[in-house]
Design a protein around this nucleic acid. Structure first.
Lengths: 141, 141
DNA sequence: TGCATAAGTCCGAGTATCGGACTAATAATG
DNA sequence: CATTATTAGTCCGATACTCGGACTTATGCA
């Protein structure tokens, strides 16, 4: 099995679990929205950066942020430095999504750790972090 | 950064590279088609299994296989054991996709190996394989 | 000032996706 | 065996997603 698929399957497992958890709490957002939401930085993110990070067109991003905003998860605010730029930030309601996801992620990571062993799980995280440095479009590498 | 995102970013990097390579050779298939194609077994796969593996509805799978078949990448044949079942198999033209992807995957894996070191890269593959055992819906775990 | 570029949005067309309902074939039950 | 339940797969119709093209506004550059 190629390395891409080996990465994909555990990833999707976690993603599905998180989405299901959100859904049971009344947050029924599609995957595409979650993938954008996930990349919003603490200080807010520019629309263009989010589009690059999520690898979708700017038009699609506009549509997704419209909906996230209408549902109260994010807010658009102007950048103080550049009047063209809109910064997307997470609202209190959006923080709920993170709060709900956290325990699910933690639980799954615990399952994986018990399956691999502590040392190996830590190493997995370490190796993946190294890989992300050279594969994330936002890391400009 | 959570483990899901750490898995996702390298995965998508490889996926994008493969899709781009296929496109330059005239195979312009969407991601959803590739994700299905990737799960077709050597002896053929049942429609239902493919839908489960790709986590899409049976209706969507029918549509995708229709298109893959129309483009000559796969073939539907009846199962000798169960007249309800249709086995999806890869045609010669479909094998081209695999042949084109192979060197791209190999090259990226080589890049990653040089970034991580041989032993660590092997370890990464080993750990991910263990994880797939408990996260692939087809593995019935 | 004038021109090129960048950020973001609106519109319209094409497509994807799914729920519901359906057919055909097998499995289970009495 | 006859009857019912379940499974595999498909068709149809409605909804929503996604993107190319064109546009507005703002910044960078000569």
């Amino acid at each position: 099995m190629n390395l891409g698929l080996l990465l994909f399957l555990p990833y999707r497992f976690m993603e599905s679990a998180v989405m299901a958890e959100l859904k049971t709490h009344g947050h029924d957002l599609p995957l595409s929205h979650a993938r954008v939401f996930q990349r919003i930085g603490l200080d807010g993110s520019r629309m263009n950066d989010l589009a690059v990070a999520a690898q979708i067109s700017k038009q699609t991003l506009t549509s997704i942020v419209d909906q996230l905003e209408a549902q109260g998860y994010v807010r658009r605010s102007p950048s103080p430095h550049d009047a063209r730029v809109r910064l997307v930030t997470i609202t209190d309601r959006g923080q709920e999504l993170i709060a709900l996801s956290q325990p699910v992620v933690t639980a799954i990571e615990a399952t994986w750790t018990s399956h691999l062993g502590h040392a190996h799980a830590a190493q997995l995280r370490h190796l993946l972090t190294a890989l992300v440095e050279i594969t994330d479009p936002l890391a400009a590498g």
